[in-house]
Amino acid sequence: MATMLSVRGLYKTFTLHTQHGAQIPVFHNLRFDAASGECVALAGASGAGKSSLLCCLYGNYRPQAGTIAVYHDGAHTDMVSAQPREILEIRRRTLGYVSQFLRVVPRVSAQDVVAEPLLALTGDREAARDKAAALLARLNIPRSLWSLPPATFSGGEQQRVNIARGFCVDYPVLLLDEPTASLDAANRAEVVRLIHEAKARGAAVVGIFHDEEVRDAVADRLFHLDAYKAAA
């Protein structure tokens, strides 16, 4: 199995300058791999840095040291030292991320929010909207809502729109931050099916799953962050 993600010597700490330079260490010397077709569940106590690790992997947080090699375009690229436009390109084609909350863009309909990443990748508006419609349908978003901006949707609906958006492109690497939180059983099961399909096509999935049922259903192994907890 090809290694899609390879993390070495990762060190992350927050320095809060607005609070007299307080240091909040997150993890140090973290080492982690994820291979094609496997799902790794991040484990650890609350505050262990699970979400921070996902953010670092996505290039959203800047680690203080270490490398994050993402297999992109037939080679490994280091997310830590990459230029902004390289990171954007990796995100566009290789790295998908489902955050806990949907970032709402004014005036854009739910269907277009979901279709946007695929449209940006292929430029084929029709195909992107078709795929978005299929995903919205699978996640039980009423058709009447598709043409509305999701700003006024309920939390659960927004989360499902967010998941649909994350799965619209068949990313080789998927980062999931509690995708099933606040979902009912039927939608949880649908998300589990989506993750299985992603693994089946060879995606490496890294996720945080608080729901043990879901975690057991999708995870191939657990990665414990507690061991990398940096001393305060």
Binding site: H17, T18, Y61, P84, I87
Partner: peptide, 21 residues
Amino acid sequence: SGLTDQVLDDPQHPYTQLLVS
């Protein structure tokens, strides 16, 4: 300077942190 979400979500410089907060 950096990627927009990097700068806004994980600001490094004291001034940026102040601006964001």
